[in-house]
Design a binder for these strands. Structure first.
Length: 407
RNA sequence: GCUGGGGUGGCGGAGUGGGCAAUCGCACUUGACUGUAAAUCAAGCGCCUUACGGCUACGUAGGUUCGAAUCCUACCCUCAGCA
């Protein structure tokens, strides 16, 4: 479905790699790409309010269908006109389909990590799992009150319609590497069916929509390092006519090399008029360079703020950041306890501009809330700043040079 | 001064004749962390050694015993109560 309220324009492509600078136009503003989207799972980027996010250079936030559906519930969010007005975020937004949670809950080794509620006892379905997958959808047990819910592709579209993000995701069933080929094959085939149903329901909902608004549905590539599968997956997305493409699954995780191998399998098929989002792109700056080099336009990642809360702060190359240390340093290390200077010599985030490393160290060690916020500000700023540098480099034809300076 | 309790690793605290470099907790160190997890997990944590292994420890000094953190004596310290 083409719509004048959503489009992607490439400003410049890198001469050597598939890296590209572009703009995603959404009903709530533009996203200069490549861009990072902080994750606001429950309609909040933990510890940060919208002005923190903007000051840290954020353009877009991603919220989660599963969590918001369970609490506060769709009715309340609908009444606010979406999760963005609810959280007072004016810019572009993305929602996840719940697919990741479905998969995570289904995995036998998975513990309920979907929320921090520890009050309720964990209920389980068969085989010790808290979710059950059928072709119909995923039946899962709420981590909040133990109630059973069925998340089908149609239901996911309806929930995301109510959450009202600019970019939404088809329901998929990502599978980790610890599963048999048979299981992976099943999940792959099921994802294709679920995505098709997602597309159909999304189309129905879009036709009822009033003018001036639009949600862009992204189809999600699955198949990991199975070349036939992932290419088939992407071809399906393109033929079906999804406005955008997302890369999902375990391969877009923490191992930058695995991410690159996966994206290499499809790079020749990527169109210029559809943005590519990497769901849960890990690997820090190294992973970002690898992904951008292969045409990724936007990505989200929870660990950037999560690791901040555990004291892992990103390091610029000028501060000693390199692949070997994953461009990060633990502010909890006792060597920081008496450092009067900021954590970074070059970072101009709010935290580094105002506070000493010793103070940050003390706050984090002590479990103080301000520490979590200052650390989150730094990490979000760092990644947004890196993305800005990357955009400028691509525009100037210096992308490879910038990568060489970092990696 | 008297009476009673107690002194074990950075801290708390087990162990009350041999299996003890010393259960466990905290702290600390190192590491892990994807569509969220201020969660959690893994490893280390007397000294020397990459390791195998070796060495020194249970307030201090003696003693009993084949063998002592454990029993005995003296002393030091400490806590509680009484003065």
């Amino acid at each position: 479905m083409q719509n004048k309220n959503f489009s992607f324009k490439i400003l410049r492509k890198d001469n050597i790699t598939c890296a590209r600078v572009g703009t995603i136009f959404t009903p709530h503003g533009a996203i200069q790409t490549p861009a990072f989207s902080p994750v606001a799972t429950r309609a909040t980027v933990k510890t940060l309010d919208p002005s923190d996010l903007i000051n840290a250079g954020s353009q877009v936030v991603l919220a989660n269908t599963y969590h918001l559906y369970l609490r506060p519930g769709i009715k309340i969010i609908e009444d606010f006109g979406g999760f963005a007005p609810f959280m007072k975020w004016d810019g572009p937004t993305i929602t996840d389909s719940g697919g990741y949670q479905v998969s995570f809950l289904w995995s036998p080794s998975a513990k309920a990590s979907v929320g921090q509620d520890t009050s309720g006892q964990e209920s389980v379905l068969d085989s010790g799992r808290v979710a059950k997958i059928t072709d119909e959808g995923a039946t899962f047990i709420s981590h909040i009150d133990g109630a059973r819910h069925l998340l089908s592709p149609e239901k996911s579209m309806e929930i995301q319609h109510s959450l009202a993000a600019d970019i939404i995701m088809a329901l998929d069933q990502p599978l980790g590497k610890d599963f048999s080929e048979k299981k992976k094959r099943e999940a792959f085939e099921r994802t294709l069916r679920w995505e098709e149903r997602s597309f159909v329901r999304w189309n129905e909902l879009e036709t009822k929509r009033k003018k001036g608004t639009f949600q862009a549905l992204y189809g999600i590539m699955q198949g990991g390092i199975n070349k036939d599968q992932i290419r088939k997956s992407l071809e399906f997305i393109l033929v079906t006519g999804f406005p955008g493409i997302a890369a999902g699954g375990e391969t877009i995780g923490t191992d930058p090399m695995l991410t690159s191998r996966t994206l290499d399998l499809v790079s020749d098929l990527l169109p210029d008029d559809k943005p590519l989002h990497a769901l849960g792109l890990g690997g820090g700056p190294e992973g970002i360079f690898e992904a951008v080099e292969r045409g990724v336009d936007t990505f989200d990642n929870t660990s950037i703020t999560r690791q901040a809360r555990s004291g892992l702060l990103f390091l610029y190359p000028e501060d000693g950041g390199k692949v070997e240390n994953k461009f990060r340093m633990d502010i909890k290390k006792s060597k920081f306890k008496d450092i009067k200077e900021p954590f970074s010599k070059v970072c101009n985030c709010y935290s580094c501009s105002n506070f000493s490393a010793a103070y940050l160290h003390h706050l984090i060690i002590s479990g103080e809330l301000l520490g979590l916020r200052l650390a989150s500000i730094h990490n979000v700023h760092f990644i947004n700043d890196l993305m800005k540098k990357i955009r400028e480099a691509i525009l100037n034809g210096d992308f490879i040079q910038l990568k060489r300076e970092w990696i």
